[in-house]
């Protein structure tokens, strides 16, 4: 096992092997990824969303490619809490990396029940609260755009997380992301992850209908990266730095320099998503590249770079 001591970071009380984390919904339950890389080099894996009851997800087409990006409307397809406990937790237990479970639900009570149950599992190191999914009618983004609801749901879930850190995933589809970030922090969030996808649409001009069965989807990929870097920097400056809350920055990261931009902008860790769909070993290449960058630049630990933007 190869580890890079210069990449070790503290993230909301967890020691991560590297600041590179797989984004929710883009790495399955990591078993697929293990065929392409040594998952112990990852800082953490974020599972796809888990809801109390199983969800079939949306009809197809669920994705469409755009210039330098893609829209998805999967609809939080997942096996539900019970099967997750029975079938997936044993798999996660065998992985030598930290595990964040992404929580989804239609009501606050559903989020709480899932968190409460999983908080007792040793296989799980923390939670990511998904209040920013643009592709479901109830829950998801409806929580994430209202600071009052964000406070309510964050504190309710935080109460049942025991000692496990709670990260709140923010949507970029708001007027001022610092307001939603501040609401999460005030309610007890241990970390923030941003950004989720941007609500978007692609139209088939022959049929004059949206391409996606769900009509709209979430835009991800390189197309959103500059906006995501800006929003991470804004939240870092206006909320996270003074509160001492780490940011998991993400949005279109594909290369080593993409990841560095987010860290320089203020992220403690970076999430890799869409790029994994094209090269499943993207995270490995970014980890290698970050280690090389630190070595070449004479940086003893990558945390020196966090928020160093001039």
């Amino acid at each position: 096992m190869e580890q890079n001591s210069n990449l070790k970071v503290d993230f909301a009380g967890l020691t991560l092997a590297s600041p590179v984390i797989t984004a929710s919904g883009t790495c399955g339950y990591a078993d697929e990824l293990a065929e392409f890389m040594d998952v112990s080099r990852l800082g953490a894996i974020t599972t796809k969303s888990i809801s109390l009851e199983p969800r079939k997800g949306n009809p197809t087409p669920r994705i469409v490619e755009t210039n330098s990006g893609m829209l998805n409307a999967i609809g939080l397809a997942n096996m539900g809490l019970q099967r997750f406990q029975d079938e997936i937790i044993p798999v996660l237990q065998s992985l030598d990396t930290k595990i964040f479970v992404n929580l989804a639900g239609k009501t606050i009570d559903e989020y709480v029940k899932v968190a409460q149950t999983l908080a007792h599992s040793d296989a799980i190191d923390g939670f990511e609260l998904n209040i920013s999914c643009p592709n479901v009618k109830k829950g998801g983004i409806t929580f994430g755009t209202d600071p009052k609801l964000i406070k309510e749901i964050t504190s309710a879930v935080k109460d049942v997380c025991l000692s496990k850190p709670l990260m709140v995933k923010l949507t970029p589809t708001v007027t001022d992301i610092s307001m939603t970030a501040a609401a999460a922090v005030e309610a007890g969030a241990d970390a923030l992850s941003l950004v989720n996808t941007f609500t978007a649409m692609v139209i088939d001009v022959q049929k004059r209908k949206p391409v996606l069965a769900n009509r709209t989807g979430g835009l991800s990929g390189p197309a959103i990266k500059p906006i995501a870097v800006y929003l991470v920097n804004k939240v870092y400056n206006e909320v996270a730095r003074d509160a001492g809350i780490p940011i998991l920055g993400m949005g279109g990261i594909r290369t080593v320099s993409d990841a560095l931009e987010f860290i320089i902008a203020g992220a403690t860790a970076v999430g890799i998503g869409t790029a994994t769909f094209v090269y499943p070993d993207t995270t490995k290449n970014i980890i290698d590249g970050l280690a090389t960058y630190c070595k070449n630049e004479g940086i003893s630990n990558i945390t020196e770079l966090i928020g160093c933007l001039e």
């Binding site: 919904g25 883009t26 790495c27 399955g28 697929e32 990824l33 065929e35 796809k48 079939k56 997800g57 009809p59 197809t60 087409p61 669920r62 994705i63 469409v64 893609m70 998805n72 999967i74 397809a77 869409t274 994994t276 769909f277 094209v278 499943p280």
Partner: peptide, 26 residues
């Protein structure tokens, strides 16, 4: 055939509806 991104089960985009007991699943 379905539109798909990753091809390895990560993106969940290429759903096919399949009969299961008296219900269906993707």
């Amino acid at each position: 055939e379905r539109m798909m991104a990753c091809g390895i089960g990560l993106c969940q985009s290429c759903a096919v509806e399949v009969k299961k007991n008296s219900d269906t699943e993707y």
